[in-house]
Design a protein around this nucleic acid. Structure first.
Length: 833
RNA sequence: GCGGACGUGGCGGAACUGGUAGACGCACCGGCUUUAGGAGCCGGCGCCGCAAGGCAUGGGGGUUCGAGUCCCCCCGUCCGCACCA
């Protein structure tokens, strides 16, 4: 048969360095993975999460980008026009902190790091359309980030407000709620976060709370991530109603606003024996009586010095955590006046900042009531064997007049109806989700396009003045204070309304803003009239497969979803685009010595050393083989050498003129040849399925198993038949191409000429997937006793008959007749005696 | 505390819908090949036992002809949230 034998590869040993550099250059030169917006193939969008350029790729990147690249190459061979873009989340604190320490401008460092990371990505063989690169700090990108801000501003989705903010002393900036860990420390620096009241910019993400919750249902995302998002949004249904303020005689005053409370248990209202407000509540002074004023002030002062960790810890005696403020309110259900407390655990930022306390059905209220001598009234009948304190379960209402006898759900509805009929309150929904604080008091971020005029107030910058870029002639102060705040050239602006002098906003945007729309820009990165056009976005979005780490389960993914919905509603993105990422895959992280591999822990393994030694294909294969991709891995478990040996084995099998190619003979196929042909087709079917299911570790096992089989056959069968061997090896190269792209491309070219990655994906012949005979298991009482070769089309009675021919079975039966026979031909027969 | 995931050889892991437990790799052991290398090829490798055979998927029950897989209880590990009214 004709076979082009490239002289360059004859019997040469496997040399990953030479091969890999050559193909990486070739993919760039040929634009193999460039795709235009009018590409005739079906569109498929594969995206790995926007990396922060901190230098060359680390192992986590390699894992992430190997998975993405496998999919890009696989889908391309399947015939799709795959959009595979790459970009850089290039604003952010590390570059600015480095500037403060070394004096090197963040732009210099960042651009150098982008080059390093790009080079690493090319070295692992990751294929991208490099024409579409997007960088957050690029003026072309800043312009559109600012443009979107202004669009949102116009639509009321951006506002400026005084708010208690999380201030990180280490980062010298405020943090979004999401960036503060549950122990009250900064997710970046680990510093204890302080609380300050500041004027800040917010995105009104809460306007989309319900939609963000509802639309999770249809996403093909890991359940874990959806659960985390649902918890974060934290929807709770209940009622909001007013507690009238009591006069000295305990009667409800009508001349002052009642105190609003939110509850999810309106059914327990008759058991409300006291109420609690947040120490930060704006009405606390009004509701504090003069005789209590000094004590309340002292209590509030004691909180001011306490950190958030302390304040939110569950520890601490409840008598110390709350104080009677003297004022009394009326329980509208009972008409009785009850005491009012202030307690640190009531948050001003959730609900109304005030709660009704029902000790009978809430353990914390029970504890508080005991500590402060309040009454406890059960309003839900606990079961007879209940011996706890507060009872949280279902049961008939008691001590609740018109609610008595109703179970919790019905009682809730009846209680709300009662409130609504009297105009005292209403059914409400509360969300834990809060608006997204986007201001950062830092230099290296996207400037907020707002100016402040003494006469006209805050004014958006006209779009024709965009981008507002960062000045380069700045000095970084060791205080960490943003140089923008003292840069006269930047500060000075003209008011777009009156033409007078104005001062520019010096806060920049949270970098999560940049990553909230980059996937849209990739669809149309050359556009100078708009951030992207709707047709391009419509063609590619939603992203068919998004790949990244679980650490972005809440922050980035929630923000990007919000941006997509808002942009669609503003007519910037296609109206029907409700979600950016149809499918999400979260790959596991890499640990070393039991700890997450990270720069800060100093336990990094540099990919370069392995790339220099065993090569990119071996490293990729090791990442794919070591564990299911979604699970965390210990670096100690990686088998780079084993993978490199396997690749060398494939090389020797496939290389023209190699040892195993010798001795090829012609003539009619033997039975052994047919078995190999069938194994080839089974492999095609298997790998296709496993790639589709992200079962990459078993796919690699499949390659090894198949290679072993071919080796044994070649050596046992006195030289292979040429066509069978060629078909087996070519199929192996095609199937392995997405996993080990360089080696396979090289071998393909040497064997067949042409470019492997332009070949189409092989298809298994269904006729080759069926066998004439199969191994049937014979069980006696459910235990395997024998295995028989039987025809594949055996029926039940045939299977039973075959089973009874077994000597081993006959010996066990010892003449007895099976009581029952379960035949599942052709796989299994179970004889029950 | 609430929510989620999980528990299989010395190790990482296979076993898609209940039907041959341990694929594949690592480690280890043996053999071959004049080969000295980070080699290659073949074979062995759950535990107990000379064997026949028995025992095995965190522990205990259950459903079923049959359970790693389904149900209940318990133990343990990891992750997320955590005074949210």
């Amino acid at each position: 048969m004709p076979r082009s034998v490239a002289s360059s590869a004859v019997s040469t040993p496997y040399d990953p360095q030479a091969i890999e550099a050559r193909w990486q250059q070739r993919w760039l030169d040929d634009g193999t993975y460039e795709v235009d917006n009018d590409d005739p193939r079906p569109p498929y969008y594969v995206l790995s999460m926007y990396p922060y350029p901190s230098g060359p790729a680390h192992m986590g990147h390699v894992r992430n980008y190997t998975m993405g690249d496998l999919l890009v190459r696989y889908r391309t061979m399947r015939g799709d026009g795959v959009l595979s873009p790459i970009g850089f989340d290039s604003f952010g604190l590390p570059a600015e902190n480095a500037a403060i320490q070394t004096g090197t401008h963040p732009r210099i460092n960042t651009e150098a790091n982008i080059e390093l990371l790009s080079a690493s990505l090319r070295r692992i063989g990751a294929a991208y359309d490099w024409r579409r690169v997007v960088k957050s700090h690029d003026p072309d990108y800043i312009r559109w980030t600012q443009w979107i801000f202004l669009k949102f501003h116009e639509a009321g989705l951006v506002y400026r407000g005084e708010a208690p903010v999380n201030w990180c002393p280490g980062c010298v900036t405020v943090l979004a709620n999401e960036q503060v860990l549950s122990d009250g420390t900064c997710e970046r620096s680990g510093d204890v976060v302080e609380h300050r009241d500041m004027e800040q910019w917010f995105y009104r993400i809460t306007a989309y709370a319900q939609e963000l919750l509802d639309d999770l249902d249809d996403l093909e995302w890991p359940n874990k991530v959806k659960v985390m998002q649902r918890n974060w949004i934290g929807r709770s249904e209940g009622a909001e109603f007013g507690l009238p303020i009591a006069d000295v005689d305990g009667n409800a005053r009508t001349d002052v606003e009642p105190l609003a409370v939110f509850t999810t248990r309106p059914d327990t209202s008759f058991g409300m024996t006291f109420a609690v407000i947040s120490p930060e509540h704006p009405r606390i002074d009004e509701l504090t009586t003069d005789d209590r004023r000094d004590d309340v002030e002292a209590f509030r002062a004691s909180l001011a010095g306490r950190s958030e960790i302390d304040r939110l810890s569950t520890e601490g005696a409840l008598d110390k955590r709350g104080i009677d403020i003297g004022g009394r309110v009326v329980n509208p259900f009972t008409g009785r006046d009850i005491p009012l407390f202030a307690a640190d655990y009531v948050l001003m930022t959730y609900g109304t900042g005030a709660i009704m306390a029902v000790p009978g059905q809430d353990q914390r209220d029970w504890d508080f009531a005991e500590a402060h001598g309040c009454d406890i009234v059960r309003t839900v009948q606990p079961p007879g064997d209940f011996d706890g304190q507060a009872y949280l379960g279902d049961g008939p209402a008691i001590n609740s007049e018109f609610l008595d006898g109703l179970h919790v759900d019905d009682a809730k509805a009846a209680a709300i109806d009662w409130l609504e009929e009297r105009g005292l309150g209403e059914r409400t929904v509360n969300y834990r989700l809060r608006d997204w604080l986007l201001s950062r008091q830092r230099y290296w971020g996207c400037p907020i396009p707002i100016v402040y005029c003494d006469d006209c107030g805050e004014r958006p910058v006209p779009v024709e003045d965009l981008p507002i870029d960062l000045p380069d002639d700045v000095e970084f102060m060791p205080t960490g204070r943003s140089p923008l705040t003292t840069h006269q050239g930047f500060l000075g602006a003209t008011c777009p309304a009156c033409g007078g002098a104005a001062r520019r906003e010096t806060d920049t945007m949270d970098t999560f803003v940049d990553s909230s729309w980059y996937f849209l820009r990739f669809t149309d990165p050359w556009n100078e009239e708009a951030p992207f056009d709707t047709a391009s976005a419509s063609r590619w979005l939603a992203v068919d497969q998004y790949i990244g780490g679980v650490e972005h389960a809440i922050l980035h993914l929630m923000y990007a979803r919000f941006f997509t919905k808002a942009l669609a509603d503003l007519g910037v993105a296609p109206a029907g685009l409700r979600e950016p990422f149809a499918r999400l895959f979260t790959q596991g992280m890499i640990r070393l010595g039991g700890a997450k591999m990270s720069k800060s822990k100093g336990n990094l393994i540099a990919p370069e050393e392995i790339l220099d030694d065993q090569g990119a294909d071996a490293l990729r294969l090791a990442h794919l083989q070591v564990k299911p991709p979604q699970e965390d891995v210990d670096w100690e478990d990686f088998g780079i050498d084993g993978c490199a040996k396997f690749l060398a084995r494939v090389w020797r099998l496939a290389v023209p003129g190699g040892d195993l190619a010798a001795g090829a003979r012609d003539g009619s196929p033997t039975a052994a040849d047919t078995e190999v042909d069938k194994a080839t087709h089974r492999l095609v079917a298997r790998i296709t399925d496993e790639y589709d299911r992200w079962s990459y570790n078993t796919a690699i096992a499949g390659f090894m198993e198949f290679t072993n089989l071919v080796y044994r056959w070649v050596q046992a069968d006195d030289g292979p038949h040429g066509p069978t061997l060629d078909a087996a090896v070519d199929a192996l190269l095609l199937l392995m191409a997405p996993a080990a792209p360089h080696l396979c491309a090289e071998l393909w070219e040497a064997r067949n000429g042409g470019h492997l990655h332009e070949q189409s994906w092989p298809e298994a012949d269904p006729a080759m997937l069926v066998d004439d005979t199969v191994t049937m298991v014979v069980q006696v009482n459910g235990k395997v006793r024998d295995r028989l070769e039987v025809p594949a089309d055996l029926d039940e009675s045939g299977a039973e008959a075959a089973a009874l021919t077994s000597d081993k079975v006959a010996a066990l039966l010892d003449g007895a007749v099976p009581r029952k026979v379960i035949a599942r031909p052709p796989k299994l027969v179970n004889l029950v005696v």
